[in-house]
Amino acid sequence: MTSIFRRGELHSLAAPYALDALEPKEHKRFEKHLGRCEDCAAEVRALREDAVRLAWSTAAPAPAALRDRVLTAVRNTPQDPAPAAEPRERARAERPPSRARRSSFSPFLIPLASTTAAAALVVAALFGVQASRTQDRLDQERAQAREITHVLAAPDARAVTGRDAKGRGLGVVASASQRAAVVTGAGLGSPADDRVHQLWLMRPEGKPRSLGLLDGDTPLIATGLNPDATSLAVTVEPSGGSPQPTTAPVVQLALESLGFGE
């Protein structure tokens, strides 16, 4: 195979390279060559700009939910240092989460089993933005992380989030086979002093079942979910919670897309 990498031949790979049309081995060889060949670098640069024109013409508005996910992930993702440079001082600007909210309720789905990256993003999103955490909180989260991992690792684990016009919503990762879900509230704010947010499992037959109290952005792990469950709902209840909802839900999220409601 080495014969095809003679100088002239290598040079002719500039266009396929600019189009990302080289096989991995050739790609590596050519990049090595680029470092030594100024003409090639200049040509590749020009050809790349041509290819970018092809890219530009395909532009399409990205789904609104994508923005939320990416910005949330960005707030929870450290940056790589600059290559071969002194480690730069990275002033991590502490900014509050964007106040810009979507105007419509927009659920989206990520098949978790297919990419670990997606799973990592969900975990990051679940833990939300917390500049400083107490040790207790960290321990608690670590224990929860184990259970969350368990849910995420299920082959049928799926994530869904939804928000209403006021930016209030729920993020859920659930596995129908494990009958378990990890739930976080988003944009719910704090209820009045003597009130709490209580999470309910809604079923077509039978009364709502309490899954526990939602505390800020702390993930709540719900187990033993009924396969016929249709949705989750959050209500404002007196401190300590209620045996049955006493107010209308502030947010609701359908579970159908997560494999429930059979």
Binding site: A55, W56, T58, A59, A60, P61, A62, P63, R67, V70
Partner: peptide, 8 residues
């Protein structure tokens, strides 16, 4: 860049 990236 999100539009061009997503579209591409």
């Amino acid at each position: 860049v999100s539009g061009p990236v997503f579209g591409l």
